[in-house]
Design a protein around this nucleic acid. Structure first.
Length: 863
RNA sequence: GCGGGCGUGGUGGAACGGUAGACACAAGCGACUUAAAAUCGCUAGGGCGCAUCGCCCGUGCGGGUUCGAGUCCCGCCGCCCGCACCA
């Protein structure tokens, strides 16, 4: 008998699918469509086993939906702009364009053998001028609708490399390449008005029924709606033209616990003061040496500087509070100034203890009869706002009330007394899209001395990136932005007046590229961003699959973009929420094998260099024992990577696909182990052997009981695997398929029933192991592709058993079981349970206190 | 620091609030074989006992709700993701 030979059957069936044009999608109004999309990859050069898992999951969905009769769209492309290409050009020469397209070619070659049901005719890269030209057209439309504007914003500036740094390039306040201390610099940059949509983006989360709750929670917290009071402290003495400091607080009920006022180092008052005060100038300069990321501000040691200025408390003009500059106040949020209430905010409490400022509690726990907590070295008291507390320094509402009630009462009180207004604010900031880099989509505007900022004419799009400079490919080893220093690229004429003018040399954030690619896939060659005929048919994405790391930014930006594209007429109203269902998958991890060198530093070893000798993991060459760190994120530097290419060559694509789906639930991480891959391969070989044997034998009737038992199992398996695939329970579906394979192997049924069961097995496996499934289908003598066979449907009558076994508990612990007819009444079940041997013995003639019968589930006897 | 998630045998994991450990890996024993590979079968959370049957313990730690908790609630610990210029 022939052996399972994936190296032969996989290319064979891939050719058959290609010849049939099976995956080329075309709109068909007569059929219901289904759009499956996996987050497209960055072309780093090699596909990663994590990609394999991601695309396999999408492929299972695509193939399953296809078998159910849907017109499936399953495209693939490349998120191809971004810093790694420029970094590579700087590090080892070459050009970002060549590097990127070379990587794309390699990765496409690696992906093709996986047998994914992708419509490759729709492939594009975001760095194709045909794509980014349409993105520039979108930008111009957004500009016209007032969805983009310019304002000044701070960036990380590396004074040695003369370049803007990303947050990840700032390490301990220093540039990653130059090591120079990073400065904050202000540049005028473009922003999308996403914050205008805060309320809508927040409220619409409720309509996303098929998104994970955790993603919706994360987005809701990120948008951060808050209700608070905005008011001003008047200054005791005017300074630098400021006679008041405007603050925003979400806890106006703690106003009588105020102990200081603090402003951001970037607050206008702080900036004015630093001009005449060396101490403040030095403090602000120190604050500005920190990176711009919120994380860094929040984790840095809390520091402040007393300006010596004082403000008056709004309720008591004789109560004066000091004004500090503090490094943890964000200029971007609220008004860039706060009042500190140390008793009810851990940060303020740290600050107050450090600088010896008063701590005044305004409320206290109910259970301690209103004893304040923070005064004597205790922690800040910050209960949930829904919890009732006792106000010891309240001024509005009841003495005992919840924080929410108190905040509303305080806002009403303040408004009635002319101290500020209640306002709703959002944490979400506008999206800065300007990047001072080469490898991105050029922002299509022109700066004219006479006309100012002028949009490029649409007929002049795309504004393409220059490849060379004075005839030679651009040299990235020279510091600075190549677009900025290019001798001719930026020189153009003003689209308005025709005079010589200069192009914008900033490019767009790569998040812009990925905020609409899902729409472009519906009409990838259209002469406009989308196509009014094709786009409405395919939109929305029915199932989107990707990593949890994109839970906030990418998904929020895409939701904003879909709205903006709708406003500009590029998407229908119904596409404002472009992703109907979202699934976030886990990572693929792998053990790290490490030894230590003479200095005690870790030395990492590739999995190939390690072998198992009598249960100990040792280096193949030296026999030295290695330490095994399980389930670590794959990383080249730790050498715990596996190359999908190698594995596919060794075992075939179906084995890899089967393995990455089995064992671990898709939303969780899965650990790649050689033994697991080996086992997956053994199983597929076994299925091949079992089905081949069945195909060779005559299709005759068997013993009725054996035939029925096998077919019952088959229908159960169809039911459970279908449910598993529907609910992303791929691991559970695979476990069921293992069990069914065992049943089939041991079955005494006749050839006819076995052929039927084997065909069902092939079909149920076809989304996961499509090549093997085609081979088995043909082996069993079926005409045509299994790809085109309709998904099997379980016969409901075959799923129901006549008798069921119920566990019997005594006091909640399992003590036995009873087998009863399926629809036996509650009383009879109770009777049977009480008569069962363990219960009768425990009761010893007595009566139970209580009997709980959960029909079809369990009986619990309480003694 | 803030927001979100996860934690179950030697390992990956299963389990609508209802028999904890399905299914697999690794391991051990056996069959087949001259032998090996492949294949097939069996054992298997820990402990105890008057051992074909029964008891106790057990889902990161400590409490709680419930007839019943891996699952729900509160408080810890550890790890992972995000924090707006990484993609």
């Amino acid at each position: 008998m022939a052996r399972y030979a994936p190296a032969e059957i996989e290319p064979k069936w891939q050719r058959a699918w290609d010849a049939a044009g099976a995956f080329v999608a075309a709109p068909d109004p007569a059929r219901e469509k289904y759009y499956v999309l996996e987050m497209f990859p960055y072309p780093s050069g090699r596909i990663h086993i994590g990609h394999v898992r991601n695309y396999t999951m999408g492929d299972v969905v695509a193939r399953y939906k296809r078998a159910q009769g849907f017109n499936v769209l399953h495209p693939m492309g490349w998120d191809a702009f971004g810093m790694p290409a420029e970094n590579a050009a700087m590090a080892s020469g070459g050009h970002p364009k060549d590097w990127t397209y070379g990587n794309i070619a390699q990765m496409r070659d690696q992906m093709k053998p996986m047998g994914l049901s992708i419509d490759w005719s729709r492939e594009f890269a975001t760095c194709d001028p045909e794509y980014y030209g349409q993105q520039q057209a979108l930008f111009l439309d957004f500009l016209e609708k007032g969805l983009v504007y310019r304002k000044a914003a701070v960036v990380n500036w590396d004074p040695v490399d003369m370049t803007v740094l990303a947050n990840e390039q700032v390490i301990d306040g220093k540039g990653w390449r130059s090591g120079a201390a990073v400065e904050r610099r202000e540049l005028v940059q473009w922003f999308f008005r996403i914050s205008d949509y805060s309320e809508e983006l927040l409220d619409a989360l409720d309509t996303l029924d098929d998104w994970p709750a955790k993603v919706k929670t994360m987005q809701a917290n990120w948008i951060g709606r808050s209700r608070g009071l905005q008011f001003a402290f008047s200054m005791v003495e005017e300074a630098e033209g400021h006679d008041r400091i405007e603050v925003y607080t979400t806890r106006p009920d703690t106003l009588l616990g105020a102990s200081f006022v603090a402003v951001s180092p970037d607050h206008p008052l702080a900036r004015a003061l630093e001009r005449h005060d060396d101490g403040i100038a030095a403090f602000n300069a120190e604050c500005r040496r920190m990176g711009t990321s919120e994380e860094e501000l929040e984790t840095a040691e809390k520091k402040g500087y007393d300006t010596g200025l004082k403000v008056r408390h709004p309720f008591d003009t004789s109560w004066e509070l000091p004004v500090w500059i503090a490094n943890f106040i964000l200029m971007d949020y609220g008004t860039g100034a706060i009042f500190g209430c140390p008793a009810h905010d851990p940060r303020d409490l740290d600050f107050a203890r450090k600088y010896d400022l008063p701590v005044i509690s305004t409320f206290a726990p109910v259970e301690d009869d209103g004893q304040p907590l923070a005064e004597d070295g205790g922690p800040a008291f910050v209960p949930p706002k829904s919890e009732r507390v006792i106000y010891i320094r309240g001024f509005a509402g009841e003495t005992e009330q919840t924080g929410e009630e108190a905040v509303e009462a305080a806002i009403r009180f303040c408004e009635d007394n002319g101290v500020g207004q209640g306002v709703t604010k959002y944490r979400l900031r506008d999206w800065g899209l300007s990047r001072q880099r080469y490898w991105g989509c050029p922002i299509p505007v022109v700066h004219c001395d006479d006309c100012g900022v002028v949009p490029e004419k649409k007929e002049n799009l795309p504004v393409t990136l220059p490849y060379d400079e004075d005839g030679a490919p651009i040299d990235f080893s020279v510091p600075g932005n190549p677009l900025d220093r290019h001798p001719s690229w930026a020189r153009t004429e003003c689209p308005a007046c025709g005079k010589p003018a200069r192009r914008e040399t900033d490019t767009m954030d790569t998040f812009v590229d990925s905020s609409w690619y899902y729409a472009r896939f519906t009409a990838p060659r259209a002469e406009a961003p989308t196509d009014p005929e094709e786009t409405p048919y395919w939109m929305n994405v029915d199932q989107y699959i990707g990593g949890i790391e994109h839970a906030i930014l990418h998904l929020l930006y895409s939701r904003f973009f879909a709205r903006a594209m709708h406003i500009c007429g590029h998407l229908p109203e119904s596409a404002k929420e472009p992703f109907e269902a979202l699934f976030t998958q886990g990572m693929v991890t792998h053990a790290i094998y490490q030894t230590t060198d003479a200095e005690g530093r870790p030395v990492y070893h590739f999995p190939d260099a390690v072998e198992n000798r009598d249960g100990r993991m040792v280096l193949r060459d030296t026999g030295e024992e290695v330490e095994v760190v399980p389930s670590a994120k794959m990383s080249k530097s730790k050498k715990n990577v596996v190359d999908p290419d190698t594995i596919i060559r060794q075992y075939g694509a179906d084995t890899v696909r089967w393995f990455v789906l089995s064992d671990s639930p898709p939303e969780r991480d899965v650990e790649w182990t050689a033994a697991g891959a080996e086992a997956a391969h053994r199983h597929l070989s076994r299925v091949y052997r079992i089905v081949s044997e069945i195909a060779e034998k005559p299709a005759e009737e068997g013993a009725p009981a054996a035939d029925e038992a096998l077919l019952r199992e088959m229908h159960k398996t169809i039911h459970e695997v279908t449910g598993g695939v529907e609910s992303f329970g791929f691991n559970a579906a695979i476990a069921r398929l293992y069990a069914f394979t065992n049943t089939l192997a041991k079955s005494e049924a006749g050839g006819a029933a076995k052929r039927q069961a084997a065909a069902a097995l092939a079909q149920l496996m076809s989304p996961m192991t499509p090549h093997l499934a085609e081979e088995l289908w043909a082996t069993l003598g079926h005409e045509g592709l299994i790809l085109d066979a309709p998904w099997p449907v379980a016969d409901a009558a075959m799923l129901v058993e006549d008798e069921i076994t119920l566990p019997v508990q005594i006091n909640g612990k399992r003590r036995g079981e009873i087998t009863v007819p399926r629809d036996l009444g509650k009383e009879e079940v109770e009777k049977a349970a009480l008569e069962s041997e363990p219960v009768a013995r425990a009761l010893d003639g007595g009566a139970p206190k209580k009997v709980i019968v959960v029909p079809g589930r369990i009986v619990n006897v309480v003694l």
